[in-house]
Design a binder for these strands. Structure first.
Lengths: 226, 226, 226, 226
DNA sequence: GATGAATGAGGATTCATTCAT
DNA sequence: AATGAATGAATCCTCATTCAT
C-alpha cells in the first residue's frame, strides 16, 4: 500500500530543519497513505482518522506533522506535482524537436506510472474545482500549456489553426493523465489495468504514434511506428 | 433530445407509481440540485442537508422521495446517463460511416453541453472507483467501447493495430467527456469556459477534424475541415 | 437542579413560531441546565455534551434548538437578563424617590435570589471580558448606570462629587450582584448560603440601610474628607 | 491569630531547590503569563500550550517546572495571594484605628493595582467554586473577615448590628477587589480603565470616604432603619 | 408529502500529558 | 532544561437517518 517515497529532501518547503530521521520517515509515510486515500475518496471523503490509521498513528499525531487536513492535502499535492514541474522545466531547454517531445511523453508516462495515485488526485481536484485548483493550475498546468503553445508556434508548419491549439494541449493532458486517472473505469471496461507494464507500454506507443500522426498532419509522407 | 422521465414505466427502479404531479416535480427538482452538488463535491462531499436546502426542503423530506443518499445518487446517475445509452443505441443502427461517426460526435457533444454536471459526475465516479462504477461501466461505457471496436474492425483499412484500438476508444472518451468534466481546470488555465457556445463549437470542430485525421491516417490524401 | 422557567413566550426572539409545547419545554430545560453549567464552569469549561446529558438529551439534539454553543450561551444570557432590563425600564417611570430606590433594591434582590445562576454567569463574562460582554454591558449595565447617574443628579443635594458618582453606581452593582455571584466564596468563608432566605433578607436590609446612609450623607454636617 | 503558613521552609510545596538562576527566571516567566491567561480565560479556558507559547516555550517544557496544570494554577494563586496575607498580618499589629484602616485600604489598593490579573483570578475561582477555593478562603479571606469583625467589635459604638457585620465585611471585599476584577466590564460601561492612575486614585478616595461615612454612622443621630 | 426533534456515528481538531532524545 | 513526537480523551459540530406529527 505504500509507494516509494521519492522524497527530495533538498527541497523541503514545509519543514526546513532536518528533523530526526524517524520523523522524516513518518512524514513520508503519512504523505504516502494520504496520497492514496485522497486519490481514492477525494478530499472530503478521506478522513484524518483513516489516514492516521493507515500510517500506523493516531489522528492526533498527524497534527504533529501537518497543521491540518488542508495543509496535509497541499503537501501531498506539492510533493506529487513538483517532479512534473521539474520535468517540464528541464524539457523546455531541450527545444521542441520531435525527439524531445517523444522523450517528454516517455518521461511523463514513466513518472505517472510510478505514482499511481497522483493523476486521480489531480482529477478529483480538477473536477471538483476545489480550493487548491488555482495553485495546481498556475504552477503546473499553465506552464505546460504555454510551453506547448510555444512549441506549436515554432513548429515549421503546424496543422492546427491558432484557435484550436489550446484544445490540442488540453487534449494531450486528457490523454496522458486521463489514462491513469480513470484507471478504475478502464479496469472495469477493458478488463486490464492501465498500470500493467504491458498497458503502460501500449499507451506510450499509442501516444507517440499520435504525436507522429499530428506532425504528419503537416507533412504526412512518412507514417512509421517504432 | 428529450430528457424528461424517459417514459419507460417498466423501468421505474425507485418508486413504482409517480404519484401526483407535484410529487414528480419535487422529485425532479431534487435530482437537479443533487446532480449539481454531487458533481461539485463528489458523493462524500455532498450532504443531504444541503441538497434538501437547495431544493427548498428539509433533509427529512428527501426520504419521501428516495430511500437514502445512495439511492439518490444512483437515481441521479441513472437519469443522467440514460439518454446517452439511448443515443448510442439509436446510433448503432445507422452504421459506422464517417458521416455517422461525425453525427455521433455532434450529438454527444450537444447532450453533454446541455447537462453540464453529468461529465463531472461520471468522472468523480470513474476516478473514485465507487460502488456505482460497475453499473456505469457495464451499461454505458462498455457498449460504447464495443460499438467503437466494431466500427474500427469493419473500417476498410484501419490505421490502428488491433491491440491499440481499445486505447483509441478510451482516448475518444477522454477527449469528449474530459472537455466538460475538467471544466473547472480549463476555466482556470485557459481563461475560457468550456460550456461557452464558442468553445463548444471549437471543441466540436477539433474533434471532427481529429476524426478526419484519424481516418486520413489510412489514406492521408485529403485533409479538409468542415 | 432546574429552576422556574420564567419564560416570556410573548417575546421569543429566537424562535418566533410557537413550535410544539414539548419542544418549548425541551428548550427551556436546555436553557436551565446550560445556565447552571455556564455559571458553574464559565463558557469554556461547560461542554455541550454535559449540558445535553443534564437535559436528558444527546449533544447532537442541542443543535436542533440552538445553532451552536455561542447561540446557546447568548440565549441563556438573554433570557436571564431580559427581566432585569424590564425591571429597570418599569422603574425609570416611577421617579427616583427614596421609596422607588428602595423598591428597586427589593425587586432586583428578589429576582436575583430566584435565579441563582445568573449573577455568576454575568460575573464570569464580566471578569473574562468575553465576546458577549459588549452586548451585556450595552443592554443592561449601561442603562442602569445612566439611570443611576440621572437619579443622583436630580437628588436635592448629593453627597458625592460628580466624578465619584460613576464609582458609586459601580459599587452598588458590586454589592447587589456580587452577593450572589460570590456565593461559593461566601459559603466557604461565612459558613452560610447567600441564598438562604435569612441571608437574603439580611443582605436586603443591609443594602437598604446603606441607601439610607448614603442619602443621610446629603446633610454632611459632620463629614470630612481626606 | 496567625493563620498563614508563611515562611515555613519545611513546607516547600512545589520544588525543593530553586536550582539555577535561569530556571528560576523561567519559572517566574511562566507564572507571569499563566497568571495573565488564567485571569483572562479562567482555568478551563487557558491552555497549557498557549501559556507555554507566551512564555517562549513548548508545552512539554512546562512540565519541567510544574507537575501539571493544576499545580501551575495553584502556584499562580499562591504567588499572587501571599503578599496580601502578609499585608494583613502586618496590619493586625497596628490596631484598628481609623488611620490604620485608611492605610490598609491604601496598601491593598496599591497592591492590587500593581498586579492587575490577581483580582480576576480570585473572582474566577470564587465564582466557579473551584477546587482551590477552600484554600483561598481559608488562608486569605477568612482571616481578613475575622480581623474586620474584630475591629468592628472593638469600635466604640458601631453603627452596624452584629448580624449585619459579616455582610459589611463582604461588601468591603466586593468594593475593593471587584473594582479591579470587573475591569473589562467597567471599561466597557464607563469607558475608562480602572487601572488608570486617575481612576485608581478616584476609587481610593471613594473607598476612604466610604469608610469615613461608615464611621460617621457611629453617631446615628438622624439615621433610621426600615 | 413535509417537518421538527432526536440520535448514533463520525467529522476535524485541541487537550493535557508522557517520554525518548 | 528543552523539545518533538505520540496519544487517549475530550472538544464542538455535522452526518445520514428515523419517526411521530
Amino acid at each position: 500500500m505504500s509507494f516509494a517515497p521519492h522524497s527530495d529532501p533538498s527541497r523541503g518547503s514545509e519543514r526546513p530543519l532536518p528533523a530526526s530521521a524517524a520523523a522524516r520517515a513518518t512524514r513520508e509515510r503519512i504523505l504516502d497513505v494520504a496520497e492514496a486515500l485522497f486519490a481514492e475518496r477525494g478530499f472530503a471523503g478521506a478522513s484524518m482518522r483513516e489516514i492516521a490509521a493507515r500510517a500506523g498513528l493516531t489522528a492526533a499525531s498527524l497534527y504533529n506533522h501537518f497543521s491540518g487536513k488542508d495543509a496535509l492535502y497541499a503537501a501531498v499535492l506539492e510533493r506529487g506535482i513538483r517532479p512534473l514541474i521539474d520535468l517540464m522545466e528541464g524539457m523546455s531547454q531541450k527545444g521542441h524537436s520531435p525527439e524531445a517531445v517523444d522523450a517528454l511523453i516517455c518521461a511523463v508516462m514513466h513518472h505517472l506510472g510510478r505514482r499511481p495515485h497522483l493523476p486521480r488526485l489531480v482529477y478529483h481536484e480538477a473536477v471538483a474545482g476545489g480550493a487548491h485548483l488555482a495553485r495546481l493550475a498556475g504552477q503546473w498546468v499553465r506552464p505546460l500549456v504555454e510551453r506547448g503553445l510555444d512549441a506549436m508556434e515554432h513548429a515549421p508548419g503546424s496543422y492546427w489553426d491558432e484557435e484550436l491549439r489550446p484544445l490540442v494541449i488540453s487534449a494531450w493532458i486528457h490523454l496522458v493523465v486521463g489514462h491513469f486517472a480513470m484507471a478504475p473505469l478502464l479496469r472495469e471496461v477493458l478488463g486490464r489495468d492501465p498500470f500493467d507494464p504491458d498497458m503502460l507500454e501500449l499507451q506510450t506507443r499509442f501516444l507517440r504514434r499520435l504525436a507522429t500522426l499530428q506532425q504528419a498532419g503537416t507533412d504526412p509522407s512518412h507514417l512509421t511506428d517504432d
